[in-house]
Structures are given as C-alpha cells and as structure tokens.
Design a protein around this nucleic acid. Sequence first.
DNA 1: ATAAAGAGTAAGGTAATCGTAAGGTAAGCT
DNA 2: AGCTTACCTTACGATTACCTTACTCTTTAT
Lengths: 221, 221
Amino acid sequence: MVKTILQKEGFRQIITAADCSQSRQSFKEEKPDCVILDVSLPDGDGFTLLRELRTESPVPVLFLSARDEDQARLLGLGLGADDYITKPFLPLELVLRIKAILSRTYFPLDKGGDNRSRFYLGETEIDLDSGVVMRADGEQYTLTAKEFALLEKLHENAGKIVTIDSLCHTAWGENIYRYENTLMVHMRRLREKVEPDPSAPRYLLTVRGLGYKLDGAKDSK
Amino acid sequence: MVKTILQKEGFRQIITAADCSQSRQSFKEEKPDCVILDVSLPDGDGFTLLRELRTESPVPVLFLSARDEDQARLLGLGLGADDYITKPFLPLELVLRIKAILSRTYFPLDKGGDNRSRFYLGETEIDLDSGVVMRADGEQYTLTAKEFALLEKLHENAGKIVTIDSLCHTAWGENIYRYENTLMVHMRRLREKVEPDPSAPRYLLTVRGLGYKLDGAKDSK
DNA sequence: ATAAAGAGTAAGGTAATCGTAAGGTAAGCT
DNA sequence: AGCTTACCTTACGATTACCTTACTCTTTAT
C-alpha cells in the first residue's frame, strides 16, 4: 500500500520487507536512504528493530503505528525515530513527511555561522571547547562534566524550551527518574558560574512545568 | 440538494449516496477527497458510519446535522469530524467550509517544513519552541505549562474544532471530569495573552456545545 | 593517607501557577 | 419574551514545582 503511494510520487527503488528478519537482510544489502517501519510485525516489534538499526546506521526512520497510541509515539521518538505517523493516514501526508525527512537529513540547513562553540551571555564568555567560563571581571570557572553536558544541550537548542526529561537524558542516559532534584542543583551551580545574580537568572531561565531554556546567547560580544 | 450547490461552484466528481451501505461501497470504489455526511440516514446513523470511516481512512469529513443534540453526541464520542454545519444552512456557507477543509487538508501551509512551531495571529507572533508570545507593541508574554499544552493542541488542529474533552485530555490526561471550568479559565488567560480584545476573540474561538478552535493562524506575517 | 573536587541527597522555604467558586452575560429554545 | 443552559470573568486560596543550602559520598590527585 505504502509502496504504491510512493511510486505514484516518483520514488524509485522501493524495497519492501514483510517481517523483521527480511528487513534486516535487505537493509544490509540495499543500504536504503530512508526506512519506513511499522510497529507491528509478524516476528517481533518495530521498537527492537529500530534499536538494532540505530546501532549500525544513522539512517532516517519514519515510524508507522496504529491509531493514537501516545506511548508508542514517545517510545519510537525516544529510540531515535525521525518522525512518526499514525494509521490511517492520507497518502499526501506520508509523502510530505518522507520528503521532509529526506531533505532535513541529506540537505541540512546549517544556518549562518559555523557551529562555533564559543558564545556570550551578556559580558560573560563561555567556551564549550575548553569548558571555561570567563566573567567580565576576569574571574574564571571551569565547567564540570555534568554542567558541561547540560549547558551544551541548552546551547544546541538556544532559545528553545528543553524539557527536564530531555536534559536528564543527556546527562544520565536511560535511568531518568529521581534525578530531577539533582538537575536543579546542577542548574543552580551553572547559574552561579554564568549568571550575574544566580537567584534572578537572565539567561538560564526556568520554564515552570516544562523545563529550562537558554535565552539571550550571542555569538559575539 | 447539496450536489446542485456544489456543482454550481464548479466541483466535479460528486458522488451521492442515499444510505449507509451505498456510501460504504462508493467510498471504497471512488476514494473521495472529502466526505459530506448527514446524521440521519435511512439505515443507520452517521456516527457509526463516521467511526467506520475513521478506522480505514482519515479522509476529511464535513458533518451535516439538524439538531443540537447531535452536536452533543459528536462531542461525547470525540469523533474526528473536521467541521460540522447545522441545517438549514446557506449555500455559500457550505461552499466556504468545504473549500476550507480541502485546502487545509491537501495544501497544508508548510513552507520549508521545520518552522512549524512559529505562527502569527494577526500582528501577534507566537513561538511554541520558546513558549513566547510577542505582541505588535513589543510586549512579551511567556506561556505557562497548561497554556502551552492547550495552544499547541489547538495549533496542531488549526482551523478544526477541538472538543473540550480532547483539550482536557491533553492538559490533564485521564481524569478529565470537573476540569471544564478550569479549561475556561486557561482559555481566558490565553486570550489575554494573544487576543487584542480578550472578550471579543478573533482567533481563539469558542464553538458552543463542542469546544474551541484556533482560526486565522498564519505561518508568516 | 589525606585533601579537594564533583556528584548526589535531603529538607525547609517560596512564589508562580493552578484550580475553585461565585456572580454575570449571552446564546438558543419553548 | 422569558427561561435555561453554556460560557465568561474575576478574585482568592491552595498546591506544587522549583529554589536553596548544607551535608554525605565517591573519585581523583598529591
């Protein structure tokens, strides 16, 4: 069904696989540019397959699942699926999502300046390469491992809200739970290093109920 | 009756069906781009038919009903009708709604693709990534967790009616009940942030008996 | 072995956000 | 027109999410 939709849109070299083992085999042989993966398969679930895939290739994956299962959605995206679509869907939607995935994977739009890991928060300079924070008064701090991981994540998503879960994940990996308090403590310590007044943050802002965001980061003074 | 109105407007390939079984058959054969569905049918009600339809296709559906009580049922069932219209109606209104449904289903305004979380309500800019509302006069508001969840849901279904149940579900999860009033309060607070005149909303519209809908959202100024 | 730095835990405090209630308004129905 | 219901609006009290500090434990370097 999916195949015919994509063929109509002009996609070529569409390889279909009926189950897990078959798809593992054709994946190795064909090295596809993109994978469309159904959750429910005759010989295993899509999640395990996705995890396997991820260990050997960063190929973009569009996840396909039955209607309205939020859990499946979150799980899929958590495992590194690039996008997610629920059945039933309109042919147009599938095509749009595939195209979006392909374009952002193979023609990434690197906006503006190169990913310099040096930036400024007001008068404070932060160099992620060396992990050094330099204040306007000349005072220097070095970032600890956790502080570094958190600040880097926030800087990657500068201006955007980063959820607590997401931050915990970058700092501790899988076992997210019960680290929320620890996260707060680390945020406090980060603030003590980068904020003029740690108790009235201007850059490392908390978004109550959602997470944190790094605001007002500049590439140059 | 509906057929003649639409023909006058230049629509072609209009397939009519007198009852449920007939429409089931022609739906499979013709794969229409849009369905107009009357509640009262000789051999069953429209609700069941709509639910059946939904299991196999997310085709856009305009619901046609005479009675208020039908709206209540639509609400209760949480069925995914894309819009509804009450009889009697003006020909022009039917046409406008059909066109709106078609355009937002088949020509979703996705320019570029990934900038989907920034949109405009008149002069007001809303960035869901950062959770910030920027008014024309430069005034900025940040969205709270609940406001964020609700606005996000409404934006996902921009132009469509989102039932109260559905909104409550996204904000509170399972225990929906007795939160209706709270929902109203949050809608009010949202309106105070995004509407020029919160008491005479132009974008966050209430649909009496059903829920709310976000109307007039644009991708660019 | 000892000191120092980093990471995590716990407990008390605070304020933004949320939810409730109560009175008011407008739309739809008989 | 009057009645009913659904929704609006406001203010206030409660909650909970987050802050903050101090203490412990682990690791690493001297």
